[in-house]
Every structure is written in C-alpha cells, then in structure tokens.
C-alpha cells in the first residue's frame, strides 16, 4: 500500500515544550489509521499539524516533513488554505455553525468561500447527507437550525460538511467522545464506509474503538511514537512492553 500522508522525523514544539518528538509514520491511502495513547501524549497535536491548524498558534513550531502524495505541506509557497481543502477535519465536540440551517451547514465550505452554485447546492446537500446516513432524519427540516439536532446528528452533520468539499484525507479528533454509545456506533459504521473513498486518520481515547474501526494503529506515549502497525498485531501481539501495558489497561 502506498502512503497518502507521511510524517518524516516530525516534531512539534510549543515554545519550550516539545509536544511531539521526531515521529515517523505512514498513513496508507483508503484505510483507517487510529492514533491511540493516554491524555496529553501528543496525539491531537500530531493530528492538527497534518492540516496546519497550528499555524494560528504563534508559539507553535512544526519541524521535519509532512508530505501529502509526496509533497511537503509545510514547503515554501504552499497555501495552508488549499491544504485544509484537501485535508478535512472533524472535531471532538460537534461544532455546526449555530447561525446556519442544516442545509447551509452542509454547504458551508462553499458558502463561506462564495463558491456555491445554486443549481448544485441541493444535490451536494442530499448526497452528503446520504453519505452520513442523516438524509432520512432531516430531509423534512433542512431549513431549521442545526442546533435543533441531537449531539450524534450534529456530529454526522459535521462529517457531511467535511466531505461536501471533497477532501482526500479526513482527520478525526476523538469524534465520539461527546456522544452516547448508539451515536458512537453510527459514527463508527460511517468511518468504515468513508475509507472506501478517503484516507481516514482518527485519534481516539477509546481502545476498543481503535480496534473496531482501524486497519492500522499507532501508539503514542509522552510525545513519542512507541509502536505502529496493523491493528490486529498491535492489539494481539505488540512488540513493545509499553504498548502491551497500555492496551491491557495497566496504565492510561
């Protein structure tokens, strides 16, 4: 399998704090890679450097290389905005735009950039909502506020909003941590389907979730990449003692 996204000797500093330490990792195309590890181990920080979300934090510094299809996304002359169009992101807490309707939330990426063609809007809305299995639940109230939806529905709406702009990679930062088990199940099923078309990188606290949805798993601890490999191997026969301790619940 070829790598869609690659980290080469990648480090993230926040001022004097070395949050992610010289990580090397490949994310294969059309597969789900889970990043697991205890709180504060740097997994969200790592994820956010892949779509340059740290650009807004003045003290943050990313070093090493992150490549998308072999091209350095931090290279000279690369526009972070175009990177974010290719690499979408779903956040921990569902964050639909409160001032927009369900319909407008789905096409928000186009609307905010003034690139929405009226004739295409309805089609994008329907196909995106169908992809996240939300269409049947909301098709009669597309004009109502996105805030009227349940937490799980809001999160699926956020995923619909992300895929509506046709990214190639989807980053998910603990997308189920604010959701109940049934809503979580729906998102997990969705992740399974998404990998047919996208490269999915998911950060999760929940080891069972990583085991259920991912093809490969990477375990991080204290900013370092301890071990990565096929999910089955990491969970049944890890090479490192630390990984084994973590997945068997001895710490974390």
């Amino acid at each position: 399998m070829n790598a869609k996204v690659s980290l080469e000797n990648m480090s993230v500093h926040f001022g004097g704090n070395h949050a992610v330490k010289s990580v090397n990792l490949d994310f294969p195309a059309n597969s789900v890679t889970a990043i697991i590890g205890p709180s504060g181990c740097g997994k969200s920080t790592l994820l956010r450097s892949i779509n340059r979300m740290h650009d807004l934090v003045p003290t943050a510094r990313v070093s090493g290389r992150i490549t998308l299809d072999g091209k350095d996304i931090y290279g000279a002359g690369v526009d972070p905005v175009s990177i974010r169009r290719t690499i979408g992101m779903v956040f921990q807490k569902p964050n639909p735009f409160p001032a927009m309707s369900i319909h407008d939330n789905v096409v928000a990426g186009y609307k905010l950039n003034n690139t929405l063609k009226r004739s295409e809007a309805d089609e994008i809305v329907e196909s995106s909502l169908r992809r996240v299995a939300l269409w049947d639940e909301v098709k009669d109230r597309l004009k109502s506020s996105a805030m009227d939806l349940s937490g799980g529905q809001q999160q699926r709406l956020c995923i619909a909003r992300t895929i509506a702009v046709q990214p190639e990679v989807i980053l998910m930062d603990e997308p189920c941590s604010a959701l109940d088990p049934i809503a979580t199940l729906k998102i997990e099923e969705l992740v399974e389907e998404l990998k047919e078309q996208y490269t999915v990188i998911i950060v999760t606290h929940n080891m069972q979730q990583a085991a259920r949805v991912s093809d490969s798993t990477a375990f991080m601890y204290m900013g370092e990449m301890v071990e990565s490999g096929p999910t089955k191997k990491i969970f049944t026969n890890p090479e490192m003692k630390q990984t084994e301790d973590y997945i068997t619940g001895r710490f974390g």
Partner: peptide
C-alpha cells in the same frame, strides 16, 4: 471551535 470548523473547511 467555530473558527476551527471554518478553517478546516478551507476557508
């Protein structure tokens, strides 16, 4: 989080 949501959409 709203700012992040918008930026992540390539705005």
């Amino acid at each position: 989080t709203l700012r992040e949501a918008s930026l992540a959409l390539g705005v």
